[in-house]
Design a binder for these strands. Sequence first.
DNA 1: GCATTTTTGCTTCCTTGTCAACAAAATAAT
DNA 2: ATTATTTTGTTGACAAGGAAGCAAAAATGC
Lengths: 151, 151
Amino acid sequence: MNKEEQVIMGFRDLLNKMVLLNKFKMEDSLKGYKPSEVHCIEYIGRNVDSNVVKLAESFYMTTGAISKLTKKLIKKGTIESYRKPDNKKEIYFRLTDQGKVIYKIHEELHKEFQERDKSVFEQVTEEQFDSMLSFVEKYSRHLDAEIKKLG
Amino acid sequence: MNKEEQVIMGFRDLLNKMVLLNKFKMEDSLKGYKPSEVHCIEYIGRNVDSNVVKLAESFYMTTGAISKLTKKLIKKGTIESYRKPDNKKEIYFRLTDQGKVIYKIHEELHKEFQERDKSVFEQVTEEQFDSMLSFVEKYSRHLDAEIKKLG
DNA sequence: GCATTTTTGCTTCCTTGTCAACAAAATAAT
DNA sequence: ATTATTTTGTTGACAAGGAAGCAAAAATGC
């Protein structure tokens, strides 16, 4: 296995481990909310005028899946939908007070994760960060172009 | 968003894009086989004496899911199971001739992907590779330890 | 040697997400 | 203006994967 593959597979492995760990921790402090739901709450809390399409694009999921997910969160009372007077098509989401509580808890958890992994990131120099970020950006742009080629 | 998050989210985004692209390409040249099936065939082709547990650990999936997946591939005639005379519990998998054909096609596809992304990797120096790999390894070990703490 | 625990694999039920078809609104084309 | 196209969101059928419970074999403990 060459270094290119090692880097890609290494990061895939890394992300899998994070998903595993986060799931465990979230089940603890955010009982009743699945990772995908929390992820959704996080996005809506951060971005004003979130809608089904934006959420779908950001999560690399279909609009159908997001439609179901948001309906579930509305039923739970975590988010609510609203429209704009001059637009009868688009439907936006915002957090309810209950949703804001979840959002806050998630933020705390996030800080906890950062604290947990601090020892690793302390060893990374500014140059290493910039080097990785530049790689990610270049590769990402390249893949965007390739995706565009397909339609 | 700090650089730590940027790196992690950047790579998550990158892998999502790859999954998307690979799915498209595979649907083209490996009709009748889903990405997870191809992934499974790849692993079995590379590792002698693959079994349900090893596959599950490698893919971060449950043994139940792998059990179903391998059964499907056996039904399709892509892989076959075998046992060892001194072990009545473990069940191993190997590729059939048909499976080897799929494996070969997948390898070609893989080379095609490398060729497609060559321009990006050519710009990465040996030092950058080593730096990223060292980061991945350190972080991975750290997360392993954290996972171990949970049980 | 026997009892207990762990490992391995399977099955059933349930949740989550995709796909395809669709409707309604908005935008573009002519 | 009115027709065609695109965008946005929903639904129902289906497939993939997880969780829990189970059985048989193997490993461990005593």
